[in-house]
Amino acid sequence: MTPLLELKNLRKDFGGLRAVDDVSLTVPEGAIVGLIGPNGSGKSTLINLIAGSTDPSAGQVRFAGQDISDLPSNEVFKMGIARGYQEPALYFKMTVLDNVLLPVKDQRGERPWFAPWRRFWQHEESAHAEAAVQALEQVQLLQHYDTLASDLSGGQMKLLEIARCLMGKPKLLLLDEPTAGVAPKLAYEIFQQIARLRDDFGITLLIVEHRLEILFDFADYVYVMHLGKLLAQGGVDEIAQDAIVREVYFGE
């Protein structure tokens, strides 16, 4: 079976800096895959490469059997890859509801010639609003639908970002430190939500995370990056015991 996501010898240079160096990895469908490594090891760059925010210097990104290496990020999203950001990148001056309605694909009312005539898109918009109710309920933000995103707490922002991704009906969700800046208890809840995305919607996840104790509770497989290269990979137990990983990560 072809994996949902496959990176082949991926490389990214920024001037003289090789941020990602010859990385090959696979993410099978329905899995929760962790990506760990010290700061500056190239994890976020790897996420950017997959999401199409930046193009690789060499190598390939294959998604569901197709080469998507050079697609811009909007096309990548349409193919079914959504992403979260390390810093919450919400529309802070828009309401929670507007935040989740914006990413819905192929909205009729987004075309300027239909937009002024409500009857062309009102029906569709109501259906999207009802889908948004479900997505917001999923992350327990429904009662805040009318709130400006800037008024949410840090943890709620992370959850809203996940709900926003959900509205694009992704097959693969890339999350960059979904628990950064969140209290430990809420961090665990966020991971429970993430696990439900896989169980309820069949969404595959690739997660960059520093809180290994939580990640290891949920991940099926873990890749370790160091200085742009893949250092190790394996099941959770394997990685937790790996001497080199412990040395790089914990300085042991």
Partner: peptide, 14 residues
Amino acid sequence: KGLRENEEVTRGLG
């Protein structure tokens, strides 16, 4: 409005 607030994210949302 999304475009005004964050161009990169709006492109990333398709």
